[in-house]
Design a protein around this nucleic acid. Structure first.
Lengths: 232, 232
DNA sequence: CAGTGGTCTAGACCACTGA
DNA sequence: CAGTGGTCTAGACCACTGA
């Protein structure tokens, strides 16, 4: 283990154990140099890493203090649905229900960025595992940002996979909630209207350009998201 | 902007724009030193940061290459429920329904780590915003890990807040899905059995010690989680 | 204005590993 | 075995800012 790793781990341990509490002052770089008998670059590497991880806050003259509290941000795995289903040993298929080029309508409830982007490709379909429907998807794609998508064949590949292969997003936002199945698509999932579904609304960007918005509704129990924090 | 930040940003931009694709070789540290006219420490700082972010893979002798694909991991905000409700301008309250010390039962469906931890404190309650119930919670806490919790008063503070103040976790895992309201607790949320709820099961650890498992069910529409990737 | 962190240099020795 | 990345040193100059 490198020395800067050891210094980082020791300070991290003192924070996680509570020996160092939020607001407590951490020894200065010069004090740590003396304590570990190393150069300033080495202690700086450790402290910069902890600062980047949100555990420390550094201010000139005032020194380094423990950050207000352990960050409540977790790392969320967002598996590609086709990959996830294949991992379970099931056959993935995207069943295309509807596809049309049109303008945004008020009832689409799109964000301004996409509503003003000009003509959209609208795609509706169902994700299946071993031909059992597990999720409904309604997607809007900006044709200004992705003109070549008019050539894509969504009977062979889901719009999400196509987009990821052709123009991977650089920024994304997911909103995760629960929703009762809508009468418009509940039958496609063999559900009664109102049945519990996991709802994911994802917006993506490529740089400044707004690419797509997709609303996915998963049959309760068919899919779950996992978020983790820590070494586990 | 520091030089190492500029180098990092330029290489990151080439990856995100597609100019550099997964598997492509990135110039060696010596080549980048010559290109930017700087020392090796400076380019190393940039490349190490990109490697830490998962965009690059570095191997001795073989050099640095672009990582297989943009990581599909997002940062999930996990707000403290009381804080989130206060942010909306509503009054938060935890309504305690049941509290008992007992052993794990098969129907609790606990993981081995907690089931074998000895006696548990079981707490059931409802989270309210302006006295409107928005979530049901069933929680199991290891008394071996947190003996002092027998003194806690959950009519004034939720078990989650108490735990966070007294023994913050160092590792956590959240499983997020949808569930139909259970007849046992649907009335507490003024729901019909089967109504759509967002389900979060959280396990926490403090070092090696298993602390708690909590199952929270949110009335659909009352709460959503947001996960982001990128600069936005 | 003194101490802090931010950055950078020009070296060095080393472990690793694929041509 | 030569080139790569991993680590570290012993300095340096600077901007910032709270005692």
């Amino acid at each position: 283990m490198a020395l800067h790793d050891r210094i980082r781990t020791e300070i991290e341990g003192q924070i996680l154990s509570g020996a160092l509490k939020p607001g407590d002052k951490v020894p200065s770089e010069h004090e740590l140099m003396a304590h570990y008998g190393c150069s300033r670059m080495t202690v700086s590497k450790a402290l910069t890493a902890l600062s980047g991880a949100g555990l420390l806050q550094r201010r000139k003259r005032a020194g380094t203090v423990v950050a207000p509290r352990p960050t409540e941000t977790m790392v969320l795995d967002v598996p590609d649905l086709a990959v996830e289903i294949a991992r379970r040993g099931q056959a993935y298929r995207f069943r295309l229900i509807a596809r049309e080029v049109r303008k945004a309508r008020p009832e689409d409830a799109l964000d301004d960025g996409l509503a003003r982007a000009g003509p959209l490709l609208f795609v509706r379909g169902v994700h299946c595992a071993d031909d059992v429907p597990i999720a409904h998807e309604a997607r809007y794609i900006s044709l200004a940002a992705v003109p070549e998508i008019v050539e894509a064949d969504f009977t062979r590949e889901s719009p999400g996979s196509w987009l990821l292969r052709h123009i991977p997003w650089t920024e994304a936002e997911n909103r995760i909630g629960a929703v009762g199945a809508d009468a418009a698509w509940a039958p496609l999932l063999n559900l009664e209207p109102g049945a519990a579904c996991l709802s994911i609304e994802r917006k993506t960007w490529r740089g400044e350009a707004r690419i797509t918005l997709v609303r996915q509704s998963f049959v309760a129990g068919s899919f779950e998201l996992v978020a983790r924090f820590g070494a586990a």
